[in-house]
């Protein structure tokens, strides 16, 4: 029972920290945190494919961008759109895109999967630049009204206030994280892990690999859409560079690798490390990508299990050292 209590206490503490965060650190760092949280949850959705199903996608940005553009265009074109439905629209649009791609992509794996996504992702990028009447071309869609969070007759919260938006974004992203985590613990989640380790055996045990993959693919796409949607609201602007650029696809892969593919929280730590490094290096040099590239190479060469893997190793060593100490004391 104490373990359970410790869990609740730490959750409560985390909520408290998030609650007071903007008051303590101010709006600038609150915004840095929101940017990090968006990136972290977006990386989690990628890890559902990469870490949990063994599918490497080089075009995950298409779901992020589609969610972002859907929300932005909906707010820009339709007046009086409420907040939650536009976020939901981002989810649905990305799921629809995933459903269209499903019949092609679930049949393949490995490099072909990665490359097909690179190609489709790039197609979306070109479309976002070329379909000017819809996407505003290179300028993107921006300056759309940000609706208030409202339950008619009960409450209406102004979302243009950065403080309010902080809480809203953290709540949506937190809930998304919990849903993704819960998914990994469900029966289909364990089948998903089975597909990563041994798809043939999964098939022979009576599960249809392609269908299971399709469900996970749509789920990952949908939540990537939500993060894109929050991003569009956060920036009040979405352009092809921020939504569909190839770096938007590579970013979460790097964060996941650096943080550790093997665990649920790896991408969160990886995103944190990247956010901190980006924040720090950009103060001194414009060569952020160079630094990122070197870090990525270093991690793959020397710590291929990533941050979480290294932590696990350190913990093992610490336990072993303590054991030796204890035995020595006997």
């Amino acid at each position: 029972m104490t373990k359970r209590m410790a869990k609740w206490v730490s959750w409560g503490f985390l909520c408290l920290v998030l609650l007071v965060f903007p008051r303590v650190f101010g709006i600038y760092y609150s915004n840095v945190f929101v940017a990090f949280a968006i990136f972290a949850v977006y990386s989690l959705t990628l890890n559902m494919l990469l870490g949990y199903t063994g599918l490497l996608s080089f075009g995950h940005a298409m779901f992020f961008g589609t969610g972002a553009y859907t929300t932005a265009i909906a707010l820009d074109r339709i007046s009086g759109m409420p907040l939650l439905p536009v976020v939901l629209a981002g989810f649905v649009a990305s799921v629809v895109l995933a459903l269209i791609l499903c019949p092609i992509v679930v049949r393949v794996g490995g490099t072909a999967f990665a490359m097909l996504h690179l190609a489709f992702g790039q197609l979306m990028y070109v479309l976002a630049l070329k379909l000017r009447f819809l996407t505003g071309g290179e300028d993107g869609v921006g300056g759309f009204p940000i609706p208030a969070f409202s339950i008619p007759g009960i409450i209406s919260v102004d979302m243009t206030n950065p403080l309010n938006f902080f809480y809203f974004a953290i709540a949506v992203l937190g809930l998304s994280t919990w849903i993704l985590w819960f998914f990994t613990k469900t029966p289909i989640g364990s089948i998903m892990i089975g597909i990563r380790d041994n798809p043939q055996r999964v098939e022979y045990m009576g599960f249809r690999v392609t269908h299971t993959k399709a469900i996970i693919y749509c789920l990952a796409a949908g939540f990537a859409g939500i993060t894109g949607s929050i991003y569009a609201l956060f920036q009040n602007l979405i352009s092809a560079e921020d939504g569909y650029n190839i770096m938007v696809s590579f970013g979460p892969i790097m964060a996941t690798i650096v943080g550790g593919v093997g665990s649920f929280s790896g991408p969160i730590f990886g995103s944190a490390i990247f956010s901190i490094i980006e924040e720090l290096t950009s103060r001194y040099t414009e060569r952020v990508e160079l630094v990122m590239g070197l870090i990525l190479i270093g991690v793959i060469l020397y710590a291929p299990m990533g941050f979480m893997g290294v932590m696990g190793l350190l913990k093992q060593r610490w336990l072993a050292a303590r054991k030796v100490k204890l035995e020595g004391a006997k």
Binding site: K185, T186, I188, S190, G206, R208, T212, I215
Partner: peptide
């Protein structure tokens, strides 16, 4: 899970 036909359940923890 397979013998019980639990294939796509995503609403309960396994």
């Amino acid at each position: 899970l397979s013998r019980k036909g639990i294939r796509f359940n995503m609403f309960r923890k396994v």
